[in-house]
Amino acid sequence: MNPYLPYPARIDDIVVETEDGSLKTFRLVLEKDRDREAWTHVPGQFAMLSIAGKGEIPIGIASSPTEKGHLLFTVNRAGVVTTALHKMDVGDPIGVRGPLGNGFPIDSELKGKNIVIIAGGFAFTTLRATLIYMLENRADYGNITVVYGARTPGMLLYKEELDAWQRRDDLDVHITVDREAPGWTGLVGFVPTIAGQVKPSPENAAALICGPPIMIKFTMPPLEEVGWTDDQVYLSLENRMKCGLGVCGHCNVGPVYVCKDGPVFTRAQVQKLPIEF
């Protein structure tokens, strides 16, 4: 087994997620039956997407392991490889190397807990995977609360699913945008403000927070005010990566490798690390 060799895959579908076109969701299908059957992952894990001639990039897996037969990756156009990916079409060849990293502890620490998912912008991807997984295994978790925000209504990901989730009675969903917008009748305000209004109880609960560092920074005080502690809060770190195996040296934050020891850490763990992420 060569851990650097990606599974051959094809682009099966492409959805433009946001109004500015900067985010697309790629549905990938592994080409070989045996790869498809052997594939298994944990929500919160990531994979290397490989475009021969351009390179590889680490992207969080946006689909839940309960969604069989394909993998979803929501990708922001930012660098060389993501720009090349955004120009690709349905049917084009691609490679997938993974799954990599640890993922959220869905079968251990999170089991039986009330779950609070807080996400900002396009950091929602692996939390979508987590949420879908939890809804498929609904009895394993307590109350599930979701606070998700984007700059504008047009920048929200997975809009059809958001609508469907809001209609469910076993799920408490709060979708917000930063500013008033024409046609928007939902919540208005930054994610930390809304999280403060929702005031989720820390009792037997865990929070999974993904978003820009500034959002995470301002989300903590309102949570701490109602009694949340750092070991109940799970974050997912990002860093430049090349191998994804804890060898190449790029992604270390002090003593830990984001790719191998993470990307999911509790906030208590992160607070002990130097600020190199």
Partner: peptide, 10 residues
Amino acid sequence: CYCFDIQDET
């Protein structure tokens, strides 16, 4: 020192 980068070239 064993850190590396990976690049594609054609």
